[in-house]
């Protein structure tokens, strides 16, 4: 198995039942696997077969991000009303800035 120049004491995926040295909890697992190492659990399937599922997961994640950002932007607009944001934009927009056009 390719170790990427660093030797692993226990192969990835065989850490179940171990006790975490830091927290003392059981069933400690490493959070990330090295490239080439077999991941535990459902993701054990080969990369090519799991591609569609990974895509769907990425799609769901992206949709969640989009909805979160939509919420943030709606909140920003709502907050701007407290400080009369549209009024500030309006009062600037109705004046033709001759200085900006170079007509002053």
């Amino acid at each position: 198995m390719e170790t990427g120049g660093r030797e692993l004491p226990v192969p990835c995926g065989e850490r179940r039942g171990k006790v975490s040295p830091r927290s003392g909890k059981k069933n400690f697992r490493e959070r990330a696997c090295r490239p080439g190492a077999k991941p535990p659990g459902r993701a054990r399937r080969p990369c090519e077969e799991g591609g569609g599922m990974k895509e769907r997961r990425a799609l769901r994640r992206r949709t969640r991000w989009a909805l979160l950002m939509l919420g943030i932007f709606v909140l920003a607009i709502g907050l701007s009303l407290l400080w009369e944001g549209p009024r500030a934009v309006y009062s600037h927009a109705v004046i033709v800035c001759l200085d900006c056009i170079g007509l002053v």
């Binding site: 932007f73 709606v74 909140l75 920003a76 607009i77 709502g78 907050l79 701007s80 009303l81 407290l82 400080w83 009369e84 944001g85 549209p86 009024r87 500030a88 934009v89 600037h92």
Partner: peptide
């Protein structure tokens, strides 16, 4: 207010 409104 204007900044939040524009970015929003």
């Amino acid at each position: 207010g204007a900044l939040l409104y524009v970015l929003g």
